[in-house]
Deep mutational scan, measured.
Amino acid sequence: NQASVVANTLIPINTALTLVMMRSEVVTPVGIPAEDIPRLVSMTVNRAVPLGTTLMPDMVKGYA
């Protein structure tokens, strides 16, 4: 099973992502692959992402 990116904290809308905000976890449904974490750093989220939420491609500006 592939690990996905999961919010390690509440990420407010329009926040630039940092490494400490994200962790990898095997979850269903599958979200952004964990190997993309380095690429996500400094990208911003377009909605509030609660703790434990899987990051989906449409949640990160410029990812999809």
Rank of each mutant, 00 (worst) to 15 (best):
L55C: 01
A16E: 08
A34C: 07
P57M: 09
A34Q: 13
A64S: 13
V30L: 12
V41M: 11
M22S: 00
T28Y: 13
A64D: 15
P57G: 08
A34P: 07
V30W: 12
I32Q: 00
L10W: 13
T44Y: 13
V60G: 01
M59A: 08
V45T: 06
A64K: 15
G52H: 13
M43I: 03
D58E: 13
L19F: 11
N8V: 10
D36L: 12
D36R: 10
N46D: 10
L10V: 12
I37Q: 05
A48L: 14
N8C: 07
M59E: 03
A16H: 15
I13T: 08
T53I: 12
A7C: 04
I37N: 00
V20L: 15
I13Q: 09
L55F: 08
L55Y: 00
G31F: 03
V27W: 03
V27G: 03
A64P: 07
P29G: 03
V41D: 03
V41S: 04
L17N: 00
Y63T: 03
E25S: 11
M22W: 02
M43T: 04
A16T: 15
G31A: 04
N46P: 03
A7W: 02
T9W: 11
K61H: 11
T18V: 07
T44S: 13
D36V: 07
T44P: 06
A16K: 08
R39E: 04
M22H: 00
P50Q: 09
N14W: 11
V41K: 06
M56G: 05
D36F: 10
S4H: 00
T28I: 10
T53G: 13
T15H: 11
N46G: 06
V41A: 07
V26P: 10
A34F: 06
N1G: 11
L10H: 14
Y63E: 03
N1W: 10
G62K: 07
A7H: 01
I32G: 00
N46E: 14
M21D: 04
M22V: 05
P12I: 05
L10A: 14
S4A: 03
A48T: 15
K61R: 15
T53M: 15
P29D: 08
A7D: 01
L10I: 14
A3V: 08
M21W: 03
V20A: 11
Q2H: 10
N1A: 15
S4M: 02
G52P: 00
S24R: 07
G52D: 14
S24I: 06
T9V: 10
T15P: 02
L40C: 03
P38R: 09
P12Q: 09
V45F: 01
V6P: 01
G52F: 05
G62Q: 10
S4V: 01
T15Y: 11
T54L: 05
V27R: 09
V41I: 12
L51Y: 15
D36Q: 09
D58F: 13
R23W: 03
V60L: 06
T54M: 04
A64N: 15
V26N: 08
T9R: 14
P12W: 03
D58R: 07
V49M: 05
D58H: 14
A34Y: 14
R47S: 11
P29S: 06
T54R: 04
T54P: 07
M43S: 04
M59L: 06
V20N: 09
T54W: 02
D36A: 10
V27D: 02
A48H: 14
A48R: 12
V27M: 07
L10T: 13
I11A: 01
V45K: 00
M22I: 15
D58W: 12
G52I: 03
D58Y: 13
V6W: 02
Y63I: 04
G62C: 15
E25V: 05
A3G: 07
A34K: 07
M56R: 08
I32N: 01
L51N: 12
G52K: 04
A48C: 07
Y63H: 04
L55Q: 02
T28L: 08
P38D: 08
A7R: 02
E25W: 05
P38L: 12
T15S: 06
V5T: 09
M43L: 15
N1D: 15
A16P: 11
I11M: 04
V49A: 08
M21N: 13
L10S: 12
P29Q: 05
N14L: 06
N1R: 03
M43A: 07
T9H: 15
R23P: 01
V20F: 15
L19H: 10
P57W: 08
V5C: 04
R39P: 01
P12R: 10
V41R: 06
G31N: 01
I11W: 01
L55R: 01
T53F: 14
V26R: 03
L19I: 06
T44G: 05
N8R: 09
R47F: 15
R47H: 14
R23L: 04
P38V: 11
M59C: 04
A7T: 10
V60W: 02
R23G: 05
A7Y: 02
S24W: 08
A7E: 01
A64G: 11
A34I: 07
P33A: 10
I13S: 12
P29C: 06
P57Q: 07
V5P: 01
V49P: 01
I11Q: 01
V30G: 08
M21C: 04
M59G: 03
R39M: 09
L17P: 02
M21V: 04
V30Y: 15
Y63C: 05
T15Q: 10
P33V: 08
I13M: 09
T18C: 04
T28P: 00
I13C: 10
A16S: 13
L17F: 02
V49K: 01
G52E: 05
A7M: 04
R23Y: 04
M43W: 07
M59F: 08
T44D: 04
I11D: 01
N1C: 05
E35G: 09
P12K: 07
M43P: 00
L40H: 00
M56C: 09
L10G: 11
T53D: 14
D58K: 09
M59H: 10
E35Y: 11
T53C: 11
Q2M: 11
R47L: 08
V45R: 00
Y63P: 03
N46H: 13
A7G: 03
M56V: 14
V49W: 03
V6R: 04
G52S: 11
G31D: 00
V45W: 00
P33D: 08
T44R: 10
S4I: 02
V20T: 14
R23E: 03
G62E: 08
Q2G: 15
Q2A: 09
M59D: 12
V49S: 02
T53H: 15
P12C: 07
V60C: 02
G31W: 03
A3W: 06
K61Y: 13
T53Q: 11
P33C: 07
P29E: 06
T18H: 05
A7P: 02
L17Q: 00
R23S: 05
L55E: 02
N14K: 07
D58I: 12
N46V: 10
V26W: 10
V20G: 14
E35M: 07
A7N: 01
V6D: 00
L19M: 13
V41H: 04
M43E: 04
E25D: 14
V49H: 02
V27F: 02
A3M: 09
G31P: 01
Y63Q: 04
N8A: 14
M59N: 05
D36G: 05
V26E: 15
V30R: 04
V49Y: 02
M22D: 00
V20M: 15
T18Y: 03
D58T: 10
T15F: 11
P33I: 13
D58V: 08
T28H: 07
L55H: 00
P50M: 07
R23I: 06
N1E: 15
P38Y: 09
Q2P: 15
M22L: 09
K61E: 12
I13P: 10
A64C: 13
R47N: 05
P50G: 13
A34L: 04
V49C: 06
M56Q: 15
S24V: 13
T28C: 15
M22P: 00
E35H: 13
M22G: 00
V26H: 08
P33N: 09
S4F: 02
A3T: 09
V6L: 13
E35V: 12
V41L: 14
T9K: 13
S4Q: 02
Q2R: 04
Y63S: 04
V30T: 09
A48Y: 12
V6T: 05
E25A: 14
T53V: 14
P50I: 07
V5H: 01
L51W: 13
D58A: 11
A16W: 07
T54N: 02
P33F: 09
R47A: 12
P57E: 08
T28A: 10
L55V: 06
G62T: 05
G62A: 11
A48N: 10
T54F: 02
P12Y: 07
V45N: 02
P33K: 06
T53N: 14
E25Q: 12
P12D: 10
N14D: 14
P57H: 12
G31C: 03
S24M: 08
P57T: 07
N46L: 14
M59Y: 13
V5L: 03
L10K: 12
V60R: 01
N46I: 10
N14I: 03
P38G: 11
R39I: 11
I32Y: 01
E25G: 09
Q2V: 13
L17G: 01
